[in-house]
Design a protein around this nucleic acid. Structure first.
Lengths: 203, 203, 203, 203
DNA sequence: AATGAATGAGTGTTCATTCAT
DNA sequence: CATGAATGAACACTCATTCAT
């Protein structure tokens, strides 16, 4: 008596999963570019080719996608950061790995913004970003000297590191050629030793 | 009994200027309390006692008041910055003076944002904001060691310093009590010497 | 020292009042034809030539117009009914006067429904109707024999009288020529004496 | 062990019929509880365990189920009416039997409408409803005095009687306890002898 | 047949902006 | 200039209906 066993997902489930992701990705972009309030559900679905109705088949409200983004962001980013955190023997090497990973990421993603479009948006207060912030803060605490970590203002520090990485990342994307290693080096040196420690750019 | 003689502005001009300012102040409050998107033009004019129509006599759009607000901030902040720049003998003292001035400034302005309100929406790159950036960059160049200044990536550095100041400034406003000196010290030490140089917060 | 005194309303106020009324009338029709739920705000304003926005300048919500209708209906109908009630010496004469007034009213209003259109709608449970119902009930109580009024089921009776008047009124409008007096006579006789008392229609 | 042999309907047909009925019953409940407009197709099928798609296999639209419901009521009620008509010897006894049958019928069906729910939306003139009207008119003609019947406006009368029965029936359902006999008595007496003939309600 | 995801017109409502007064 | 009523595009969201599976 034979029975065919389907492993994995049927076509329907595949499409569903794909749509869910598509909406999520579109929402990430749109929220990033315009902010939560300014972004409309139509802005989001327009990028997916789906209908307004479909949006509500997958998420119950605009707020729900926003929340889902936090989950997803944390879910995708955290392993990367955690991997670096695990490998890293000290704070500096963690920082360098994390910043490099981030710069690689945005360099790879910059595609859409490549030409003419709005400048790389200031993504802010996305739940996703808050999750990343927490991750970074925790990694800072974990990889820093125990004493140091206990004595430093970790919120200010993590916030500053992220702010610098964002700012420099944005500048990096605006320059040709895009120099990930150089930008990362700048960030790491600034954070680790301040101005006197800064790399000298090539002429 | 004598007539008062207005020199400079007629009564008409005075009211006009007063209305402009009233709208600007009301807008600052309202945007602070509800965020740019959520705030309505009616929310703004309601606090001025003027009519919707009058609003459009003074500003062409909601966006324009918003920009005027950023502009106004920058316009008022630039002279302060320049004064510090003139006084400063070296980079660190300039940096400290500038950051302290900035923190004093935002602490004074924060009134409406006081507690729990939405964060100020992302300030767009007003021409005046760019001017502030240039101001800082120039001051960095001027107060730094000639050699150092020539060899460091001043755009990245000025951008980073501003980003850190903004980030820490925002954090500062969210804490009670608001500690301008402590926050400024954090920024200066981070920029001047990186993590090892950071102040230890009081327990 | 002369002063022109405007008596009455300025042009603005006139238009405002006219619009308010226009919306109310349109709402009366639309709610009548489609019912509260099915009726849309757009259905209402379409008949006024105003814009959606204007609707909300006059009424805060769809529900509010509906409620306003009750007020208005009571306000307009009650005086008529009360006048009859005051004049009437006995129940029968009141009933005849009220029914005749109602038939005159619908005969005069039938204009819009005249040709082709939907049959005269069953307006029901409009707050307006409830107000009229109460009026009729009170008038019944007032003009009936004291003993009788106390002993009869006034809710059933008023409801029945209104139902009959509506039904016969509808029939009346569908016949040519429209015979108000005859229809009213039918209703009065049926209510006053039942089938044996009914008028014999002319052949 | 033998095969069960279905006579008449195959299993397929049985399920089909069952589904049709299930949808009809669910719709009766849902329309009763929320009103036609507020009720959604999903509300209906949710109670049947079927899918939205299945709904449309049985009825072409939400409106169609609604009409089917009225139709169904009329179809089931007509034979009852005809039976009374056959039995009745005179007009009054027919009227009483018919009204009582109607009140029994709606009292039995009222289940879902029980307390506080929206009133059943206005029943449209289903062909079956018109048939009921004709039935009543014919029975009036048949059971009335030949002379009387010839001389009275039978359309107005049948319409009035039905309107009164509906109105009082609705009122009856809204009172506790539900008093079929009392309500029927009211209707019959009103139609047969008008106000002076009305029953006196118990105190 | 049955399923349930997809569709998109439609809902009540808001609000920036215009313009007659 | 000031006023505030009018405008209509836009919003988040719903739901009857269709249709690929």
């Amino acid at each position: 008596m034979s029975q065919i066993v389907y492993i994995g997902l049927g076509k329907r489930e595949q499409t569903k999963a794909a749509n869910r992701t598509a909406i999520l990705e579109a929402a990430r972009e749109v929220f990033g570019e315009m902010g939560f309030e300014a972004a409309t559900v139509r802005d989001i679905i327009r990028r997916t080719g789906l209908s307004v109705g479909a949006f509500y088949n997958y998420y119950r409200s605009k707020e729900e996608v926003f929340d889902a983004l936090a989950d997803d962001g944390a879910r995708r980013f955290r392993p990367i950061l955690q991997a670096q955190s695990a490998k890293a023997t000290d704070f500096e090497s963690y920082l360098r790995a994390a910043v490099t990973a981030y710069f690689d990421f945005i360099a790879a993603e910059q595609g859409p913004w490549a030409e003419g479009a709005e400048p790389m948006p200031h993504v802010r207060n996305t739940p996703e970003m808050l999750a990343v912030f927490e991750e970074v803060r925790a990694a800072f605490a974990a990889t820093m000297d125990r004493n140091l970590a206990a004595e430093v203002d970790l919120d200010y520090l993590a916030g500053s590191a992220i702010a610098v990485a964002r700012e420099v990342g944005e500048g990096m994307l605006a320059r040709r050629p895009v120099d990930v290693a150089g930008a990362a080096d700048f960030v790491v040196r600034l954070i680790m030793g301040g101005v006197p420690n800064l790399p000298r750019p090539e002429r």
